[in-house]
């Protein structure tokens, strides 16, 4: 039988800050971030790992925090949208999304920027096609895809065909 109300120790470093807490096994990582740590920048949308809104970095890899159990992330380093800006200065991607209209309603934006950052960390000079393939799993229901793509390509420093 399940031990009702059991809590499990989870230690993780979130945006450079260590946290240790007790959590139920069924707690997803996105819920732990939002409800236990108050980091509400990460959004849950589809809840089944398809849309990309809940994208965070887990030990540098993008993962869907809505289908990752918090207990699975024990010992990991997590980066959320709140950890993208450094020393009070926005990341170039954040600046570019604002300047180039890389969002409309904003729900998908955290996931878009975290995913794009992971790509540029691994490959600072991707082609437009590589960006498209990488970002394929981050849906924007406002369909603002061209401006999102343009925002990323401007950071890469490559001209993008304008609309």
């Amino acid at each position: 039988m399940t031990i009702e109300g059991a809590r499990y120790p989870v230690s993780l470093v979130v945006n450079g800050k260590p946290h240790s807490l007790l959590t139920p096994a069924r707690r997803t990582l996105v819920d732990l971030l939002r409800y236990d740590l108050g980091l509400t920048g990460t959004k849950e949308a589809c809840g089944i790992g398809v849309c990309g809104a809940c994208t965070v970095l887990l030990d540098g890899r993008i993962v869907a925090s809505c289908i990752t159990l918090a207990v699975q992330a024990d010992g990991a380093a997590i980066t959320t949208i709140e950890g993208i800006a450094q020393d009070g200065k926005l990341h170039p991607l954040q600046e570019s999304f604002m300047k180039n209209g890389g969002f409309q309603c904003g729900i998908c934006t955290s996931g878009q920027i975290v995913a794009a950052k992971a790509l540029l960390d691994a490959n600072p000079n991707p082609t437009r096609e590589q960006v498209q393939e990488w970002m394929m799993g981050n849906l924007c229901r406002c369909t603002g895809y061209y401006h999102i793509l343009d925002s990323i390509m401007k950071v890469v420093g490559k001209d993008s065909p304008s609309l």
């Binding site: 069924r26 089944i48 990752t68």
Partner: peptide, 18 residues
């Protein structure tokens, strides 16, 4: 856990112990 967590969320799989 990418498939299992979705199935647990949707109650397609039930488990007392993971």
């Amino acid at each position: 856990g990418t498939a299992l967590t979705v199935m647990l969320k949707q109650s397609l799989v039930q488990a007392d112990h993971l």
